[in-house]
Design a protein around this nucleic acid. Structure first.
Length: 452
DNA sequence: GATCAAGGCCAG
DNA sequence: CTGGCCTTGATC
């Protein structure tokens, strides 16, 4: 499904498609859906769908099924907690900064699309963008180029991992560091800095130290980024469960978690060293190509570093029985589960550490074989540098070093094929309408049919 | 003072 | 019950 360039998607209410009147309860919606949502929450209304709870909601049909309309309101992200219990009028709520941030993103996106259009008009070569303008718009709902909008960098707290990462080293001395990495300590610090956003806590865990999973879990619990993500996921899960009064849907909960994980991955990427130097178009191409690999890596690395045999450690810190997953899943999921478990075991045997996972993350992100990269050479050189650093690191830190690097490469290709399986599975679910709308996961899957 | 996202009002 | 318009008030 492609959208013509002329259509301004942002002006359409995500619930019914009517004209947007502003941010209401966390989402840009029309006046009528705002009112509907408010009345429903304030008056504690419960609706019943006379159909199969999948009614289409648009301007002409939105009055027909309030159940599905409210359902859609929740699905697109309208917040129950934004409706005030005390009915106090005026003022701002806690979402104020988020609205501001989103508005900045929106403006940036518009500017980007406009710039793209101009370039397309002047250069007919860029056919990809004319046909995929929707995908670009989608990605920019959650991803941004910090270089283009100075105000955005201000919205990051000064103690945010991204800022800390920037303080560790600047791009100018980075290349030099890579060249001069001559001992394991240097390499460790290199990899540690690469770890950046995702694992600030890893700085406190030495690679040489004995593995004490429980303690490491505790470390992660103390990680502000991890805590923030967990809190956000819990709130999304609660919201998701609130709209499913009767039965808990495990798959939608998994989607919520995957989506939030994906958001954090995109956030990590866009503030990462090297990646932030890239043109936005290349950033998008790379992310569109590797999001599922990064997602699978994130899940796998969590199991390797903190998980327990036979159970699945979720981002929320909860453990799930793998045998339960196996017995309740379809054949596609069983195979994924099986292969994932095998890969986790192999990586555990190899005792892959944080630094190595961080390098692998970069190797996945900087894939020079992605089509139509404008800065192909830069991407290639980053990949080579990271590969070189990983090789040196494995040589310096391990006695069984000869095979270690080769093993890691081998497991990386296994991870790649696993991610293709996972992506196909999710894509199938997406086509059958089971992936909740209006989240990044859904949009990535949607973009799959536009970009590939 | 301007902005804008809350709640309120009321004709349809 | 709906939805367009109005009032309110914290924040910038």
């Amino acid at each position: 499904m492609n959208f013509p360039c002329e259509v301004d998607l942002e002006e359409q209410c995500p619930v019914c498609g009517d004209k947007v009147s502003g941010y209401h309860y966390g989402v840009l919606t029309c006046e009528s859906c705002k009112g509907f949502f408010k009345r429903t929450v304030q008056n504690n209304k419960t609706y019943v769908c006379v159909e199969n709870q999948q009614c289409k909601i648009d301007t002409s049909k939105r009055k027909r099924c309030p159940f599905c309309r409210f359902q859609k309101c929740l699905n697109v992200g309208m917040r129950l907690e934004a409706v005030r219990a005390d009915r106090m009028r005026g003022g701002r709520n806690k979402f104020g900064p988020m609205y501001k941030h989103n508005r900045a993103l929106k403006q940036q996106k518009k500017a980007l699309i406009q710039a793209r259009r101009l370039r397309i008009e002047s250069n007919q070569k860029e056919v990809t963008f004319t046909s995929n303008i929707h995908s670009i718009a989608i990605l920019h709902n959650t991803k941004l180029n910090p270089n283009q909008l100075p105000s955005l960098s201000l919205s990051q707290p000064c103690n945010s991992p991204a800022v800390i990462q920037h303080q560790i080293t600047s791009p100018s001395n980075w290349a030099m560091r890579l060249e001069n990495c001559s001992n394991s300590a240097d390499l460790a610090s290199f990899a540690e800095a690469i770890v950046g956003l995702h694992h600030t806590s890893s700085r406190s865990i030495s690679t040489q130290s004995p593995r004490i999973p429980q303690l490491e879990i505790e470390f992660r619990h103390c990680d502000p980024h991890e805590l923030q993500l967990q809190k956000k996921i819990f709130s999304c899960l609660q919201q998701e469960q609130a709209c499913r009064h009767r039965e808990a849907n495990t798959f939608s909960s998994v989607c919520v978690m995957a989506d939030q994980l994906l958001c954090s991955i995109v956030e990590w990427a866009r503030t990462s060293i090297f990646f932030k130097e890239l043109k936005v178009s290349d950033q998008m191409r790379l992310l569109h190509s590797c999001w599922s690999e990064l997602l699978v890596l994130e899940i796998i690395s969590r199991q390797v570093l903190y998980g327990i045999d036979g159970s699945l450690l979720l981002i929320t810190g909860q453990q799930g029985e793998l045998s339960y997953v196996a017995s309740h899943a379809g054949s596609a999921l069983v195979s994924l589960n099986q292969r994932g478990t095998e890969l986790v075991e192999k990586l555990r045997m190899l005792k892959v550490d944080h630094q190595e996972f961080a390098c692998i993350r970069f190797l996945i992100l900087f894939a020079p074989d992605v089509k139509e990269l404008e800065e192909h050479h830069f991407v290639e050189s980053v990949q080579q540098q990271v590969e070189g650093a990983l090789l040196k690191y494995t040589l310096a830190s391990s006695s069984q070093s000869c095979n270690r690097f080769t093993c890691l490469q081998l497991y990386l290709s296994e991870l790649r094929s696993l991610s293709i399986l996972a992506e196909d599975y999710l894509y199938y679910k997406h086509l059958s309408g089971e992936v909740p709308c209006n989240n990044l996961l859904n949009e990535m899957l949607h973009a799959k049919c536009c970009w590939t």
